[in-house]
Computed example of a mutant assay.
Amino acid sequence: MASDLPPDPRFFILEDDVWGPYDTKFSKLEPASRGDPPPCPKCGKTIGMLMWLPPYRAELELHGQGLGDFVGGPGNEVLISERMKEAFQAEGLVGLLGFHPVEVVRVRRKGRGPKVDTMPCYFVATARFGHGAVDEARSRLQRNKPVTCSECRNTGVDAIHGFTLESGTWRGEDVFRPRGLQGDIVVSERFAEFIKRHGFTNMKLIPTEEYVWDPLQKKNPNGLSDP
């Protein structure tokens, strides 16, 4: 008998589209002001990097043919274009915080392509630390330390060969950093459709169950096969 329960929602890892036609990176112009990293509300352990504080001044590095709507860089912050910011807010999506204007001091082109004549308008945003938690039993992770805090579940990770979230832990955010993998940005299926509908650039979406991150080539953490 088929289950009457609705299927689990789909989630995606959000990355910038390296080597894509709108490959763009940003760096914070020094000297930059920084604040304390965010702590876990339960154990107090650091769950992120130093916060970028105003004034927000950045330098863009363009590897593609045009500047992207989404720009990654150091720290927890990302830059998004004005048109993406306006559409995100107008459609009532949730999970990105801040939206502070950034002064783009210069654009450095890497490789061939058209010259950038005008400085774009970008905003700095951060992905919310969400309530959605990694399902350890159904995920293929290799952690270098055991999980000790039931809230943040924050430990070092040596390899990821696909993961999923615990049913019932997600609270509707469209963009968030999940408990247990706070270094990654996860997005909802609604956000994936939002990107496609508007044609926003320099964003790559990978289904979480297919996501592989294995810099040490550990391969098949926990002895499980790749999805």
Rank of each mutant, 00 (worst) to 15 (best):
N76H: 03
E136R: 02
A90M: 07
V78D: 02
D158F: 08
R190A: 08
G35F: 10
R112T: 12
V186Q: 05
N154P: 00
P178Y: 02
P215Q: 06
L181V: 11
C40H: 15
P37T: 05
F200T: 00
S27I: 11
P215C: 09
R57S: 07
D174V: 02
V105K: 14
L67T: 06
T24K: 08
Y22H: 12
G113H: 14
P37D: 09
H63P: 03
F70K: 00
E82Y: 00
W52T: 10
R109C: 02
G72W: 07
S33D: 15
G98T: 13
C152A: 01
V105F: 06
E15R: 11
K28P: 06
D135F: 07
G66L: 08
R57V: 01
M84I: 00
R109G: 06
M1W: 12
D23I: 01
S3G: 11
S33G: 07
E189R: 14
L205Y: 13
P39M: 11
G132W: 02
P39Y: 12
H131K: 15
I13K: 14
G68Y: 04
S139G: 00
D117N: 12
Q65H: 10
V187T: 08
L60D: 07
A58P: 05
G48F: 01
Q142G: 14
R179L: 15
V175K: 07
L205I: 02
L14G: 01
L14V: 03
Y211L: 00
C152M: 04
F191E: 07
R108V: 13
H63K: 08
D184W: 10
G168H: 01
Q89K: 01
C43M: 10
K145T: 06
E193V: 12
V102P: 05
F129S: 02
I206Y: 12
F191P: 03
F191Y: 15
L67S: 13
T46L: 10
P215V: 09
G66T: 04
F70G: 05
